[in-house]
């Protein structure tokens, strides 16, 4: 639907609504981000570089990017597998599972952190077992990874599901009648149409992970140079009364956010689940 008929073109009322909407978005969304941009750049490029390359900041950014990348990889694989199973297989508890997948959208991220501590923390359900086996999850990088996997779980599943639902089984059957083995069918017939959806879900996960705060702040222990991620580093700088440094580091994350959001939209259009 590229064109809207002339009779439905917005009249005066419609244009007033549009003006109001643009003003709302401009003031509520754009203005704060512009303030962030202005403050981040206010000290000049040198100050910006200094703030970003301060050892603490650099470590936090690196940790954030790495853990987000590892999470995204796992998410792309397991999210696709989960969508596949939920759409294609019939098994008891399928509906329940399908509902459960949306849980991370409904639950506060801070509560996610609390739950993870209750599970993996020193006095958690698995605390004793973890202590004897020498594994460290809470207050360590695996905790960060588990938190990220939890909060981003629905993205890939929900992106891939509609595409799977629309896939015509005849394509698969046609490939099989042409003598293709299961692996070839998967690689050549089933996967290509899913790819844009997998990518768009992955991009959304990655972007979300870069900004994640509530779950990580509880579960990671926030140990500088060990488990301190970028958003928590920012929080520390703000608490310490240095919003200038915080704004500078924010710029890096903002750049990622804009680029990833743009890419996510483009991928969604490509995947045909445009909205």
């Amino acid at each position: 639907m590229d064109r809207v008929s002339d009779a439905l073109n917005p009249g005066t009322g419609g244009r007033v609504v549009r003006g109001a909407v643009l003003a709302y978005i401009g003031l509520l969304v754009l203005l704060p981000l512009v303030a962030l941009l202005q403050r981040g750049l206010a000290g000049g490029m040198d100050a910006l570089w200094q703030a970003i390359s301060a050892p603490g900041a650099r470590h936090a950014l690196t940790l954030t990017l790495w853990s987000a990348a590892v999470m995204t990889l796992i998410n792309a694989l397991m999210g696709t597998a989960a969508a596949w199973v939920l759409v294609r297989y019939r098994f008891p508890g399928r509906t329940f599972l399908s509902t459960l997948v949306d849980l991370p959208f409904a639950i506060p991220t801070l509560v996610t952190g609390v739950m993870l501590v209750l599970l993996y923390g020193p006095r958690g359900l698995m605390g004793d077992w973890l202590a004897t086996s020498g594994l460290k999850i809470a207050f360590a990088p695996p905790g960060i990874l588990l938190a990220l996997l939890f909060v981003t779980l629905p993205f890939v599943v929900r992106a891939v599901e509609p595409v799977l639902l629309e896939q015509d089984p005849a394509e698969e059957e046609a490939a099989r009648t042409l003598g293709a083995d299961a692996f070839t069918v998967f690689l050549r017939v089933l996967l290509p149409p899913l790819l844009p959806a997998i990518l768009s879900g992955s991009v959304r996960s990655f972007a979300r992970a870069l900004g994640e705060f509530g779950s990580i702040v509880v579960v990671s222990g926030n140990i500088p140079y060990k488990t301190l991620t970028a958003p928590i580093y920012l929080f520390g700088e703000i608490e310490a009364g240095d919003p200038q440094a915080a704004a500078a580091v924010s710029l890096v994350l903002l750049l990622f956010a804009v680029a990833l959001t743009y890419a996510g939209r483009a991928l969604e259009r490509w995947a045909g689940v445009d909205a």
């Binding site: 704060p32 900004g211 958003p231 920012l234 903002l254």
Partner: peptide
């Protein structure tokens, strides 16, 4: 179209910071 999706990708800490800066 991109702008309206940005709040999903911006860290909540940055959101708070941005309003602080205003």
């Amino acid at each position: 179209d991109t702008l309206v999706d940005l709040p999903l990708a911006v860290s909540p800490v940055m959101t708070g910071l941005a309003f602080l800066l205003l």
